[in-house]
Structure formats: C-alpha cells, structure tokens
Amino acid sequence: MSALPLFRRALADSWRGLVGWMLGLAAVVGMYLPLYPSIGGNPEFIAIIESLPPELVTALSYDQITTGSGYTLGTVHGLIGFVLVTIAAVGWGASAIAGDEERGTLELTLAHGVSRHQLVLERLAAIVVKLVALTAWVTLLVAVLNGPSELDISTEGILAGGVALLGTGLVTATIGLLAGALTGRRMIAIGAGAGIAVLGYALNALGNQNADLEWLHAISPYHWAYGTNPLESGFDASVGLLYAVAIIASAVAVLAFRRRDVGV
C-alpha cells in the first residue's frame, strides 16, 4: 500500500475541488441541453441568429446551432464546458509544481525519498485522472440528455466530443505544468495555461472570419479539437495534435524540473 504516494496524495488533496467542478458542469449541461428543442428548431430563434452579425455567429460557432450536434458544440464542448474544463486544468496544472513551490511546501516533499521526475509524473497522472473524470462526466451527461433533449447525436459523436474536450484540457494543464516546472512561478504557470486556451480560441475565431486568415486554424488547439465538429462527424485525426502537444509539454516539464533549483 505504498505505491505512487504522490499521486494518491494529490488526489486526496483535491477530490473536493473535482466534485465541485463536476457539479458545476452538471448544472450548465443540464441547463443548456434541454433547451435545444425550443431553440434549435425554432424559426424565431433562427431568425435572431440570422440577424446577428455573421462574424459574431461564426466566432461563437452558432452557424451550426440548428442541429443537435452543432448546438451541443456551441453551448457545451466549445463554450461553457470548454471554459470550465479550461479553468480547472489551468488551476491544476499551475498548482502541481509552481503553486506548491510558492507556498514553500515543495521543498520538504523533495527532501524525502522522491525523485524530481517521479514528482512531476505522479502529479501529472493525478491531473490526467481528474480531467478524464471531468470530461467523462460531461460525456455521460450528454449521452443521458441526448434522447430527452432531441439532440440526435451518434454514440461515436458523443465519445469523440469527450475525447476532444479532454484533449483541450490536457494541453492547457500540461502547458501550465511546463511553465511551472520551468519557472516555479504560479502566475506565469496560470498565464501560460490560460493563455494557450484563450489564444487557441481567438485564433480559431479569427480564422473563421475569412479565407485570408484561415491559416490561423493550423496553430489553434481549439481548432484542432473543434474545427471539424466531432459531435457531428466523429473522430478526427487533428485531435491527435492535442495529445501530441500534451505529451511533449509533459516530457519537457520533466526534463526542465530535473535541472533547476527549487524554491529560490
């Protein structure tokens, strides 16, 4: 009963937060999705969408909002769910090393029988488990509401949406973790994690505006996830880029943290 002590400690310290995020996600998903029957097929609502500036509509991905999968992307995976998962991922990624270091508690942990890479990997594993729990929860909620809310999303679409959402969370968390491993400064880690999420969203929205800016899609993690609506068309190879970035960021975080002084 002494395997992965840091991993178990990290989960034990943060399960309350995880439950809070799950309740929050349940509230927003449970609020938005049941509204679809009265919005998606509603001619008055469609008229409102058509009267909005087209730039705004594309920026919010509301151009697909009249389908169940488009509506779910535009409200949950691409908007409120994305925001909540991003905030959780930023917080977890930044606190894993930088937050612990700034509080002064990391020094004592490292003074015991743990290696630097073990610490990064076990705490990363705890973040992954929590993000999987969050996104699996969202996926489950969507699956449960799919019928009652007349969303008509395929099972593959529901799963692909969850995998894309998880990918965005992993990129955000690992970039925050990496910034913390490099600098030990919590604000830098938060800025890096939140920055990559906001930037990805902005690049995607800009790229949607016209053909001249479309190349921005190529460097937007948000677009890798949702450029092709996974809820509509299922798994897409570009989602793999999210996981590749997360793995690279994690590897660099391990190497960077092995090298530097802690708590100075």
Partner: peptide, 27 residues
C-alpha cells in the same frame, strides 16, 4: 532527515496523514 528553516505547511489533512505520507515517500 531534513527540517527546513522556513517550514511551510498548509494542508487540510491531519498531522498523522501528512507524516504517514512522508513516511511512505521514505519507504
């Protein structure tokens, strides 16, 4: 065995749980 000069501890777990955790790290 190391005692830092600026000892920071702010966990909500009990002293026993924290000390057991450190003991596990040390095997």
């Amino acid at each position: 065995g190391y005692l830092p000069g600026e000892l920071a501890m702010d966990t909500r777990v009990s002293g026993r749980a924290l000390l057991t955790h450190y003991a596990q790290l040390n095997g």
